[in-house]
Design a protein around this nucleic acid. Sequence first.
DNA 1: ACAGGATGCCTAGCGCCGCTAGAATCCCTG
DNA 2: CAGGGATTCTAGCGGCGCTAGGCATCCTGT
Lengths: 188, 188
Amino acid sequence: MSIRERRERERQDRERLIVRAAREFAEAEGWDAVTTRRLAEQIEYSQPVLYSHFKGKDAIMAAVALEGFAELAAALREARAGSSGGPAAVAAAYVRFAEEQPVLYETMFTGAVDLTFASPETPAPLREGFRELREALRPVIGSDDLDAETEVFWASLHGLVTLTRGGRLPRDGHPRRLELLLRRFSTT
Amino acid sequence: MSIRERRERERQDRERLIVRAAREFAEAEGWDAVTTRRLAEQIEYSQPVLYSHFKGKDAIMAAVALEGFAELAAALREARAGSSGGPAAVAAAYVRFAEEQPVLYETMFTGAVDLTFASPETPAPLREGFRELREALRPVIGSDDLDAETEVFWASLHGLVTLTRGGRLPRDGHPRRLELLLRRFSTT
DNA sequence: ACAGGATGCCTAGCGCCGCTAGAATCCCTG
DNA sequence: CAGGGATTCTAGCGGCGCTAGGCATCCTGT
């Protein structure tokens, strides 16, 4: 049975290679520059092989997005475990993640519409990221509806990040805006 | 000179037709379904004519986006002129606009990266929409940095709208979240 | 009134895309 | 070592955004 296992292992390696290549190309040149032909060339297999791993390009993008959610959750967890661990630290980690890997972040929140947050079948990384935000907020939120408050906070962060990145908000005002948002969420 | 004027008028009519067709197709079936061939057929001209009006498909999308910004500004102005005219009314109008024309809204805030807000060369409709939001907030914001506060409020609204629409936040909690956001912005 | 040039529009096609059918090859099984 | 699945490849389909180049049409100057 070892041969079968080896093949399966190699197959998974190849799949990881595909996702990695897609992610790197996308981050460097945008998703339009990630073509199935280019991916195939990169992994040194022919084009149709991609389709034995993923249903199509959208599925590859979704795989990249999921990877991003896992890493975002990890970044938030680390921030919350840090010296302060408060909302400011976690928010800063969130913003840093989005700014350092803008295309990845955009992939996570645009497209791949079949990922819901507060639902039983929500992938674990999504739930975990949300949990970190919520626990960071808990001490400073008086409201009894912590989940909804967290959703609002998350959405506000997301709005700041996306509008700033899209050039809709002046880039240099970013820290100031973040500060104001945190102040709004530091009482009641 | 009348003939020249008539030609110019017809040309502008045709341009409006293109934008209208693009917008309708996009709202109904998404931008992928808006092809230059389809647009050409719709306006009953050949494909290259589109390129005498717009540099490319991206420019057509930008034109649609700009139209959206004008309408959004109008909607906000109307809301602010209404009986209440407070932040809640304006926010509700904002959300309604985004929900009723989701593709248009997405077009306005994704892609078309060459539109900045707080800048001298910012198109008028963008500045006006921002102004409406700011004036609605003025009575309830104690801070001396009203502009930055408005930016944060706008970003929060935007985040709520996009995350909810993308399925990242449960749809039925939307009014509740909006309520919480407004409460956060009703003091200090 | 009419030649000549500018303008406006169309036909045709380029290179690329995501994706797939069917042939060919490889490798496990009996 | 032969049969049969699984795996991978070659080749190509239809459609995309975009453009070159030719034709017709209209404005202009004599």
